[in-house]
Structure formats: structure tokens, C-alpha cells
């Protein structure tokens, strides 16, 4: 029987295992953004991916359109009935927006957490190994995208930007299994209830909203939106509707199962929201100064 590993190969094997562990450790570190060599590789690979996936996406959506053609009549009927309501709604929204702006001027608070500027992006790849629920979009730092920004479709929130390079960014979907994947959210109702969107129930296909006070009454069907607290998410992005309340293991808080408004599958076009108020915390240098001053007291 031939020897499976010679000495030299054994050394190479052991060397690579050490490299493997080091690299995994490096990439699991809690870091704000990826390093510049990674960005460079991402841009180069993303360039090729763009060339490949744009035509493929076009072909795919062409077939999708053909499939949809069959339901055109029913859809048309439905849309026509919506259209009548829409005109009324639109005029209401315009009036309310104007009111809101005027009132804000009176209060001298012209910017709000809900203001954002959407950046359109096309999905160029979905992680083919399907372990991490990551998608890659064709907009990056050069278009003003930064890590932790909210990503949504027309229906609602789908995820947040995990890392950016010059021309691409990677988006982590809300359905990803990652303990750092949290979004501050609120349940709309007579009184606003705050909680955290944290985790995804694979079997029920529901998001879990945790840390809801146990005495709060939540009804089925209430809307869940982002709260705009913490980070760079704008306020008021639709997440979904409450379907079920379950007490948590210690009975101190409740968990709501939230049916996501947007589908996490087969995404083609998404919007990245760039919030107008971002400077919540002082710059890092200023923060240090504050600490020093406190120590001095």
C-alpha cells in the first residue's frame, strides 16, 4: 500500500490547517467592514459576476413575465379596484406630508429619523452554497452605501448591508442565522411597543421579535416596523405583521412571531436606504475626549 501522506505533504497539511483556523478566526471577528484586499477581490469578482448575471437575470425575468402573462386579466381587475382608492390616498398623503413639514418647521426639528434617500440596486448574486443567506448587490461605497444600512424591497425590509467594497456590497437577509443579526422594531397600535427582531423560525417561516414586555397586549395582525433607534436604520420601514405571541422561557418578556411582509426569496431589485440623520453618536475622537473629561472630574 502506498503511503498516503509523505512527510512534506504532512507539513503542508498541518500548515494549511493552521492557516484555515487563523483565517476563520480573522473573518469571524466582530469587524465593521472588510479589509482592502478583500474589497479588491470582491470588486474584481463582482465585475465578472455583473457581466454574467445581468444577461441571465434578464432572461430569467423575461420568462417570469411570460408566466405572469397568464394572470394578467385577474391582476388587472384587482389593480383597477385599488386604483380608485389610491387617488384618495395619494391626496391624503400629500396633505399630511405638507402638514408634517410645516409642523416640524414650527418645532425647529426639520429632520426626522424617518427621512431617508433610497438607492436602487440590482441583486447580482446569491450565495450559491446557501448557508448564510447573503446576497450581493451591484452598488457599493462609490454610491454612498455603508455597512449596517437597511435594505428593502417594495414590500418591506429584507436585511442589512454587511460589508461594502467600492462597487459591490454584501447584504445579510433577516432570515440569516446570526446572533448579531438584530433590528430594533416596534409594534404599531394605541401604545407603541418596542422590541428586537432577532432570529428566524425556519419551519414556520416567521421572524421572531423578542424583548416585548410581558404585560403588553398585542393583537394578531398588528403591523411591525423599524423603530429607527440604534444604528442607521430609518424609522417606519415595514417589517411584517404579528401572527402569534409566545411567552419566553422565563416569562419576563414575550416573543412575537412576525410574518415578514417581503419575501426573502428570488430577490431581483432592492433599495438601500441612506438615512439623513446618521450622526447619533459623536465621532470616535470626540467620544474619547468625553471619557477623558469624565475621568478628570
Amino acid at each position: 500500500m502506498p503511503q498516503f501522506f509523505t512527510n512534506k505533504r504532512l507539513i503542508i497539511l498541518l500548515g494549511s490547517i493552521i492557516l484555515l483556523v487563523a483565517m476563520i478566526g480573522f473573518s469571524l471577528r466582530d469587524r465593521d467592514n472588510i479589509t482592502w484586499p478583500e474589497k479588491f477581490v470582491k470588486d474584481v469578482t463582482g465585475f465578472g459576476q455583473n457581466i454574467v448575471s445581468k444577461p441571465a437575470g434578464a432572461v430569467e425575468s423575461f420568462f417570469g413575465d411570460i408566466r405572469r402573462l397568464r394572470h394578467t386579466y385577474e391582476e388587472n381587475e384587482k389593480l383597477r379596484s385599488h386604483l380608485e382608492e389610491l387617488a384618495q390616498l395619494e391626496s391624503d398623503v400629500a396633505r399630511l406630508e405638507k402638514d408634517n413639514a410645516e409642523l416640524r418647521k414650527v418645532l425647529e426639528k426639520e429632520k426626522s429619523l424617518a427621512d431617508y434617500e433610497p438607492i436602487q440596486a440590482t441583486v447580482i448574486a446569491r450565495n450559491p452554497d446557501r448557508w448564510y443567506e447573503l446576497i450581493t448587490i451591484d452598488q457599493g461605497e462609490s454610491n454612498g452605501i455603508e455597512p449596517d444600512m437597511a435594505v428593502m424591497t417594495a414590500n418591506g425590509l429584507v436585511g442589512k448591508v454587511q460589508s461594502t467594497s467600492k462597487f459591490t456590497s454584501t447584504v445579510q437577509l433577516l432570515s440569516a442565522h446570526d446572533s448579531q443579526n438584530r433590528v430594533s422594531a416596534l409594534i404599531q397600535g394605541e401604545t407603541t411597543i418596542y422590541g428586537l427582531i432577532e432570529g428566524y423560525d425556519e419551519e414556520k417561516k416567521m421572524l421572531q421579535m423578542t424583548k416585548i414586555p410581558s404585560d403588553s397586549k398585542v393583537k394578531k395582525g398588528q403591523a411591525v416596523t423599524t423603530s429607527g433607534l440604534g444604528g442607521v436604520f430609518p424609522k417606519g420601514l415595514v417589517i411584517g405583521t404579528v401572527t402569534e405571541m409566545v411567552p419566553d422561557e422565563f416569562g419576563l418578556t414575550q416573543t412575537a412571531l412576525v410574518e415578514p411582509a417581503a419575501s426573502f426569496y428570488d430577490l431581483e431589485h432592492v433599495m438601500v436606504s441612506k438615512r439623513e440623520i446618521t450622526g447619533v453618536l459623536p465621532e470616535e475622537e470626540d467620544r474619547q475626549q468625553v471619557l477623558v473629561e469624565e475621568e478628570g472630574l
Binding site: 484555515l20 476563520i24 459576476q49 448564510y132 454584501t170
Partner: peptide, 9 residues
Amino acid sequence: MFYTGLLGA
């Protein structure tokens, strides 16, 4: 680098 972000695997 491009897809998974978990370097080394």
C-alpha cells in the same frame, strides 16, 4: 471572499 465571507473554508 465573494460569496460566503467566511475566509478559509
